[in-house]
């Protein structure tokens, strides 16, 4: 069918976009209501969030099911495949920029706002009139600012769990690549093994991170309230953890799809998209390990 490329494919009407818009609205409306509730007032926010979240899960399930069905029916030609690939690449680029905002905030705070609060450069008068006693430092010595917001804390040492997590994610990048090569060679058993390993490694990473968070809260007194150190630490690692969670779920779904035989040597965009996403999550972690934990 060499002519196939010349005939465009326009998908049929679908109810999923409007369902998606509605459930997203329900979720954020519930969240806003919950956050906006008066202290002590119970409100219906949490109920609404739960309904919305279940709706979002159902929407993803339904939308992807219809896409998979159409894909298996052979509806998607080469051009559609390329559109999907471009879509995924630019989506990952947007994610990079989202993390960029938080990394940018971290760099700005460490290079400018904290030193200026300590009297460096043009912050000399701010320092003199507002926070004369503060000597600028990062980490436990001054990362929670002149007012020591959140109280004294200690930092997570990079060479324990974070190093282990780095090794786990790097290994998972290797296993997902082996699975990809196995897919192209058509070795189903090998794909299932290495993709399954990747899922397990992702889950292990999440377990370690949860452990690290609990230790930080209980023993180190490092919390989201620990000044700007705590803010950047938990927001960066937290958003990353959220992405690992999503990535792990996506990998698990792909594992099931491999089991069902949805992919062949040529057509496996779903697999590749998730693999790209996983590599992206991995690279973000390397940035975190370097700039949040080590430096």
């Amino acid at each position: 069918m060499s002519q196939q490329h010349d005939i465009y494919y326009v998908p049929s009407k679908s109810q999923w976009p409007i369902v998606a818009a509605v459930v997203m609205f329900i979720t954020v409306f519930g969240a806003a209501h919950w956050l906006n509730a008066e202290p002590g007032e119970s409100g219906f926010g949490k109920t609404v969030i739960t309904i919305g979240a279940i709706g979002i899960l159902g929407m993803f399930f339904g939308w992807f099911r219809s896409v998979i069905k159409e894909s298996l029916a052979g509806n998607y030609n080469h051009q559609v495949d390329t559109s999907f690939r471009m879509g995924m690449m630019w989506f990952i680029f947007s994610e990079v920029m989202f993390f960029g905002a938080f990394f940018g905030a971290l760099f700005y705070i460490r290079n400018f706002s904290v030193p200026w609060l300590g009297g460096e450069g043009h912050g000399v008068l701010t320092h003199q009139y507002l926070y004369g006693a503060y000597s600028a430092a990062w980490g436990a010595a001054g990362g929670n600012g002149p007012l020591q917001v959140g109280g004294a804390f200690s930092v997570v040492q990079p060479w324990g769990l974070p190093l282990l997590n780095t090794l786990i994610l790097l290994t998972s990048s290797v296993t997902v690549t082996i699975a990809h090569h196995a897919l192209r060679a058509g070795h189903r058993g090998k794909i299932l093994l290495f993709l399954g390993l990747t899922v397990l490694l992702g889950a292990t990473f999440l377990y370690c991170q949860a452990h690290e968070y609990m230790e930080a809260y209980k023993e180190l007194n490092l919390t989201l309230h620990s000044g700007v150190y705590g803010s950047t630490f938990f927001m960066l690692t937290g958003f990353h953890g959220l992405h690992v969670t999503l990535g792990t779920i996506m990998l698990a779904v792909i594992w099931c799809r491999v089991l069902k035989g949805h992919f062949n040597k040529e057509h496996h965009f779903g697999f590749e998209a998730v693999a790209w996403y996983w590599h992206f999550v991995d690279v973000v972690w390397l940035g975190l390990f370097l700039f949040v934990y080590i430096l």
Binding site: I109, W116, L117, V149, L224, G227, Y229
Partner: peptide
Amino acid sequence: TSFFNPGGGGD
């Protein structure tokens, strides 16, 4: 969080 709170090291 303290991103924009100078007391907590933010700006």
